[in-house]
Design a protein around this nucleic acid. Structure first.
Lengths: 216, 216
DNA sequence: CCATGTTGGTACAGTGAGTGCAGTTAATAC
DNA sequence: GTATTAACTGCACTCACTGTACCAACATGG
């Protein structure tokens, strides 16, 4: 349900300890995955590099691959919050579109580097796809909220959620891999998929609707 | 490279034996996954039910989950062949579109039942997503073949491949789960994504291009 | 400041997926 | 008929991941 509830407290010494352990585990995991490869890295090594026991690793991450995505939960929560915090009179697809594009615009170079790692390591790509399902569910839920939960609406919502996530993943991973600007392609394809709202003209996108020309 | 080479032979007794073992393994795996659930089924049990040793299972399938998709390779090969066997003067996106819709039209009820199982079992859904990457690569390769391999074309091809597979997966799984007709929604969204070719008017699709109305 | 509950971490034993390797047997090729 | 191949087996091994009992440090409330 993506609880955006504020269950904040003053962080204890214990909280800080826990956070630091988690951070160290993720750091060492990402480092070792990059250096030796995913399969050549054991959880035992990650834990030892972070200075904790193997068992502790699994108190922080459910799987070996999950350590490469330490902030996944927060990012999904943030995404959901942005989706739902828009002007309620804006068309939901427009809202979705602008949240997605904003997210691409604010993707840090370090995060892009992570995407580049992702596309090179199949196991991490799998994990990435798995985590993307949280976004799909968020998007589908958001659309169903506006469209109602008739079977047709649900199918439509899921189809669009899947498509949209597919586009973003592909363009972001290309951006990480080849340094390409993800925004233009994403905006163009999202425009076709979700409709091009008139209030935000796109930069480098043709007027649309002509048979998509070969990009050469 | 999806070798569509004909390396056919007369199947001898050994081939038949191998095929039969593989078939029995897949059958028992699917049965047990459905009856007990994925996690509650061990490879040892699958192998025993099929009357072979545990080791033999892994001579036929690389992972436990793969046994639920025994004909994956052939289906991908078939898909690639259909993609490339079209009229070379047809726009590639139109070709892609009609191959995808044809595939949905020819999805057997038994296969739909499998999709329903998929959407209930998270581990199998993961495996499905993993196998879908073969389709993504096939589609992206097909598009790059027509568009050239400039970075922009590659990004575009990958983005569209991801989106298209996402749509098909969502609609097929909804069709399996709720018995909904996958074709209409797929055709509509693919139409928006890939362009609606004039030579094949769609059934239940609005003229497109107006802001996508709430389906309620 | 002490008693008491809480919690992050550890040690250990276990399950099960997946692999490498060295056979065995039976069909096939020559 | 003999040599070869290939499907299958048995066994030992690695490693991801889990359940459980435990400890030690910290938090909390009087």
């Amino acid at each position: 349900m993506a609880t955006t509830m504020n269950d904040e407290r003053q962080p204890n010494a214990r909280d800080l300890q826990r956070l630091e352990t988690r951070r160290a585990l993720a750091e060492q995991a990402i480092r070792l995955f990059g250096e030796r490869g995913f399969d050549q890295t054991t959880v035992e090594e990650i834990a030892a590099s972070a200075g904790v026991s193997t068992r502790t690793f699994f108190l922080h991450f459910p799987t070996k691959a999950a350590a490469a995505f330490p902030d996944h939960g927060e990012r999904v929560d943030d995404f959901v919050q942005r989706l739902n915090s828009g002007d309620p009179f804006v068309q939901p697809l427009s809202q979705l579109r602008s949240v997605l594009l904003a997210r691409i615009d604010t993707t840090s170079p370090s995060r892009l580097a992570r995407y580049a790692l992702l596309s090179r390591v199949p196991e991490l790509r799998d994990e990435d796809a798995r985590t993307d399902r949280d976004y799909e569910e968020a998007i589908a839920g958001f659309l169903v909220l506006h469209w109602g939960s008739s079977p047709e609406a649900v199918v439509r919502a899921n189809a669009i959620a899947n498509a949209v996530i597919g586009v973003v993943r592909a363009t972001l991973s290309a951006a990480g891999e080849h340094g390409i600007d993800a925004r233009a392609v994403t905006a163009e394809i999202l425009g076709r998929l979700l409709g091009v709202p008139l209030d935000e003209p796109l930069h480098s996108v043709q007027p649309n609707r002509k048979p998509p020309a070969s990009p050469i």
